[in-house]
Design a protein around this nucleic acid. Structure first.
Lengths: 204, 204, 204, 204
DNA sequence: AATGAATGAGAGTTCATTCAT
DNA sequence: AATGAATGAACTCTCATTCAT
């Protein structure tokens, strides 16, 4: 069999397993899910899993890598020609907030939970996603600011605050807060406004 | 033995176990920690644990309850006589940010991780901590706003955004971001400024 | 304290424990019952039990000894002057059947169950109860037969069959057979008739 | 692998485990036997047991089911053409008495002991064995009696007495009575005679 | 490549028994 | 004599992983 097709088959099988794992992880959590659960959901034998993944944790990592790919794809950054700051902000906020909404909140929860506790996963996330994303945003904004003659000294921290804001709202959503859940769609606007104008009279 | 002293002994033993569990949980995480680990750390027999806690999860809940107690104690609210909004905000932000710093970041991570995945723990957190805290803040701000003739329509969401910001920064800290870690102490000021004035030139 | 009173106190305490154990054994069975259960029921401390009994099994033995005493007391044999065979049989059958009815069927079940499995208990039962009782019955019948000029060659086996019949009916009762349960009171008559006349037309 | 062979392998493994369990249960009793004991005797890993049985009790149930199968097979009823009552009785008595003798008395003891104490096992025994067997015997005798113009009013109770007699003799055997043990082979005859003719001079 | 039965280390938990008070 | 907290051996059961087929 040509190597190319071979590779595609392997990828297909991996994805089959990851799809199945995503379903059962989302439903039961990482630790409570057994490899038998995954195999059953994927309609393959338990042993087959180990032809494609070293161990259970590697499956979670695999799911994570796919999430990463989708995040990075979406994050492909906000056109250099967005001159309006408000529009820029809105775009910057819109993607992650809506991505998560569309995506599986339940699975996100599982991955984050394990990430907080698993050094390897955390490192990968930081090095491969968080840090590059922050750096990208920083560069993009820096450039724009420079073109307008500004030089924001606290940009690094600002960016972390903004992205932290998103993180925090996701957590509150997960925690079951209904206000956040109900007004999720307003958030891009609301946050952009808050960030631009500060706490105006409607807010505090 | 007088009941009073009896109660104190029981409390002391419970705390001894919780202290030990906090240490090993922080070091290894909840799932990887065995009851044997806890017993060894507490220098008691494994069986003794079960004289004080129903099961392993109950120990985590116990740790959580102690955290709760300390959080609630600190959260005792920001004096009604803080008329300056900036000072008010600063106070509001300062406590949780500094509390966590003092506290065990590692343990916090374990508890949050499990909370994301454990319905019971999540419910307790939401009902006993998050919701009341948000409600308290809301009432306190509402009152102040009213005394000044304002009526902030989006207050509920604002409060969630602000507290989410704190959550998010904690997560970034946990994830190992060095910018956040190094400038942790500046955050109360920085955030208060951001919230009051929006993204000023030093920020973006 | 005089030795006599001392002894009475000890007996009283033992009985208190045995009473409690009988209650919880009857309710839950021997193995599922914990020494804590017994202590709680007896309203004493767990450790106290061990001042009076060597171990959990010794408690069951204690219960058994009390049963034995009551059985032996009742079995005190059927007056030598019962000349009518039917009356003799009736008396012979009546006591054990009715004793069990009055007594705790549930507790009886527990003791028998454990007896089947516990060598020591079984030996004690056989040596101290079953064998003597059978011997007593044998002697008593032998004497009567002799006085009437008969010499029943199979008496030993007959006696075992009759007492086995009682045992078996008890088992069927325990097993939940409703026919046996409902007609329990008729049994002495019914059995006496069967034994004297064989399977008459009303029976087969 | 064909399903048929697959099924046979599973059955074989189950039987291997049941055989092993029967040996160790008979030797040590149900509760004192550990799953490790069973595994060692079966020469398999402890975990393998749980691929075939849900838990330890299910193994006892499995043993019980096999006993049931053998009992039911033997009990296949005493031909309708047995016109002689004595022969009928003899047949009726012979099977269970001899089956037990051939079979493992020790194992029987274990199962009965647990049955007395285990609701589930008791229910199964009563519903699946005792009740049907009694019903079968009743129907069979009823028919024969009817054909001879008789209508035995106490048949139900009679049958219980007879089968109880067998039960009781088994118990006495288990209890270690030597008279019963030594004359076990005579019992079918002896009991048939007793039942037909009542207590004749050789018996009392 | 796929299978799934077999594995066995190790988990959480129980509880009869001890012993310092 | 009574207590009951402490003990720790021993239990049943789980499950990620292996490997012969």
């Amino acid at each position: 069999m040509p190597d190319r097709i071979q590779q595609q088959l392997i990828e297909a099988r991996k994805n089959q397993i990851l799809d199945a794992a995503a379903v059962v992880f989302a439903a039961k959590g990482f630790h409570p899910t057994t490899t038998k659960d995954i195999a059953r959901q994927a309609e393959i034998a338990e042993g087959t899993i180990y032809n494609y993944f070293d161990n259970k944790t590697a499956i979670l990592l695999g799911i994570f890598e796919r999430m990463k790919a989708s995040v990075v794809a979406q994050a492909a950054p906000p056109a250099a020609d967005v001159h309006d700051v408000r529009e820029f902000l809105h775009t910057f906020l819109y993607h992650p907030l809506m991505a998560l909404k569309a995506d599986n909140f339940a699975l996100f929860r599982i991955v984050v939970s394990e990430m907080m506790v698993n050094e390897e996963l955390r490192r990968r996330y930081y090095e491969q996603i968080l840090a590059p994303t922050l750096a990208l945003a920083e560069a993009s904004i820096q450039e724009q600011a420079a073109s307008q003659g500004r030089s924001p000294a606290n940009l690094k921290l600002t960016i972390r605050v903004i992205s932290g804001m998103i993180w925090g709202l996701m957590l509150e959503h997960i925690m079951g807060d209904s206000v956040v859940a109900e007004r999720w769609d307003e958030l891009p606007d609301f946050l952009a406004d808050l960030l631009l104008n500060g706490l105006t009279d409607d807010k505090i």
